[in-house]
């Protein structure tokens, strides 16, 4: 019974982390048809920005509560800055190329950002544990969990709701849906697709950075962080259906629970359970869980 509770809680915690990581990736793909490999680098940049901001903050003995706001601010600033730079400085020049070519473009960005991060932050790990530690522990069904991890679940729900509301209930969101549905038609109707692209990419980048910044207090932030995350995020997004926010949510939950079950019941298979789930889902639903099937060329 305790194992079951642990699987559910651990699974949900892991899923909420996966969702925040994957949300930006799937949004960018949905709107721009770019499978952004550099999303992992934005995660890393967010983590570094968050960790160094927190280190700076606590060196001045400010109250703990402010550090959580600081993490979010660090993520927004760093994510928006880098996102804008990548979109305006590079991607803009490449629009209209094949999807696979765009994957390679973002692979180039990933390589460049990996070394750029190293040049800016060095190779020594950053540790900024205070926000994680100060939240304390919570007991669920006789097991202790870190309150911070549970709080992330709440944040993740808020992000999901905000995205859903932003896309489905605002005017900007409707424009976004129009661009997703048919880019040419949207342009013809006078939607400023360029602006939609900029905004989407920046939001996607901020989400990636947010995932990193919120994870930063739990981990030691070190080089190579982004590369580890990106494949996981891909698995989630493909399982859920590329470009679908609901899909990313469900994909994250399935993979999160499956992984937690593996850790508790059969730790040997942890390494490939994620890909196993992805392959299984694709075998049954070739487009992923939530994606529309594309029209066939005639």
């Amino acid at each position: 019974m305790q194992t079951l509770i642990a699987i559910v809680v651990d699974g949900v915690i892991y899923a909420s982390w996966l969702f925040i990581v994957a949300a930006g990736l799937t949004l960018v793909y949905g709107v721009m048809r770019i499978l952004n490999l550099a999303h992992g680098s934005l995660y890393a940049i967010g983590a570094y920005a968050g960790a160094s901001a927190v280190v700076w903050y606590f060196a001045r003995n400010y109250p703990v509560a402010g550090s959580y706001a600081l993490l979010v601010i660090a993520a927004i600033v760093s994510g928006a800055l880098v996102g804008l730079l990548v979109e305006r400085g590079l991607l803009r020049l490449m629009y209209g190329r094949d999807e696979v070519v765009m994957v390679l473009v973002t692979y180039g960005v990933l390589l460049i950002l990996e070394d750029a991060i190293k040049l800016v932050f060095g190779v020594e790990a950053y540790t900024a544990f205070q926000p994680y530690e100060k939240m304390g522990r919570t007991s669920i069904g006789g097991m202790t969990f870190a309150t911070y991890d549970l709080a992330l679940v709440a944040v993740s729900i808020v992000v999901a709701l905000a995205l859903w509301w932003g896309v489905n209930r605002t005017k900007q969101g409707k424009l976004l849906l129009a661009v997703i549905a048919d880019r040419e038609m949207a342009t013809a109707l006078g939607i400023n697709v360029t602006r939609v692209f900029i905004v989407t990419f920046v939001i996607g980048s901020v989400l990636g950075a947010l995932a990193g910044a919120l994870t930063a207090p739990a981990i030691a932030v070190a080089p190579g962080l982004g590369v580890e995350v990106i494949v996981l995020a891909f698995a989630v997004v493909v399982t859920g259906g590329l470009g679908s926010i609901e899909g990313a949510l469900v994909g994250a939950l399935i993979i999160g629970i499956a992984r937690a079950a593996a850790v508790h019941l059969w730790p040997q298979v942890e390494l490939f359970v994620i890909y196993g789930v992805m392959a299984l889902v694709l075998a049954v639903r070739p487009q992923g869980l939530f994606a529309r099937a594309g029209a066939r060329k005639i």
Partner: peptide, 17 residues
């Protein structure tokens, strides 16, 4: 015996186990 992936970073489930 928990064997997370190299560089996994978050160990919430493993610590529960």
């Amino acid at each position: 015996s928990q064997m997370p992936k190299l560089g996994a970073g978050t160990y919430s489930s493993e610590i529960s186990a």
